[in-house]
Amino acid sequence: MEDGVYLGVDVGSVSTNLVVMEPGGRISKKVYLRTEGNPIASVQKAFREVAPEFAGVKVLGVGVTGSGRQLIGAITGADVIKNEITAQGVAALQAYPEVRTVLEIGGQDSKIILIENGVAVDFGMNTVCAAGTGSFLDQQAHRLNLSIAEFGQIALRSKNPVRIAGRCSVFAESDMIHKQQMGHSLEDIVAGLCAALVRNYLNNVAKGKEIRPPVLFQGGVAANAGIKRAFEQELGHQVMVPEYYDTMGAWGCALLAQEERAAYGKSRFRGFQLTEEEIRVSGFECVDCPNRCEVVEVKIDQRPLAGWGDRCGKWQRINAEATG
């Protein structure tokens, strides 16, 4: 096997993850950071963390995923830019080849992936509503003055969870306040919230999908033992949380970069120095036609690197000339 490493980057709305993977699939380092609304800075920070250790190592391929994949793909010089669903599915299969259902709950979105004989056959994703996602829990934890880390442990202490309306986070909030005023204990309310999130997930994202074991639960919210238990109670069977539950997307796209290595040959990775570059992104409304596309343009040290957002492809062409 060739010497070197594969890099996988998952730029989500809430967290930015980077994994350094050895050929074959073993993770040798992982970085988990908050995106804090600045995907470029957080990716630079993540690369800075691994640079000292891996700067001399050959990078065989780079895969990026997540909602910021296009932006970060352009900045890093990624070889594979994949959607989150495929990346999460590939990582789940690497962790547990026999898995049949993947539940994934992230900060802003949640998904379900159904797998048969080692191949994804169906998926579901939440629509615009974030009621069944991590940000819902974040908000409610904040309201209860709890850190999100304590949240799961407190839920596990509950003997008698209260029922909280989970259809909508606005309803859930007023319902929760009502239950607090009625005098229910904190752990019962927290456990009730976990159950509400799970019900919401199963009724929206997983609507009409058959959940068959083995079930894998991944994404940032999988750290929450309360949610895991609520899933197990609702589904009636065991739910597993993989070791790298919070960096499955990054791992998955590193695996995809390895899988497609033959197709691209040499990596387009721009090197670890990208952490020191000045990267500017500007947006403008193209007025050449009534579509009024919002075009994004990326400049590195004042050289245009990439552009997108246009429907006609005009700005993307310029991008190809600039880099190719």
Binding site: N83, I85, A120, V121, F123
Partner: peptide, 17 residues
């Protein structure tokens, strides 16, 4: 973004299958 993600994932699913 959401629409393209879904279509891409669907096409991946067909191709990988």
């Amino acid at each position: 973004a959401g629409l393209v993600t879904r279509i891409e994932a669907f096409i991946d699913l067909l191709q990988r299958k």
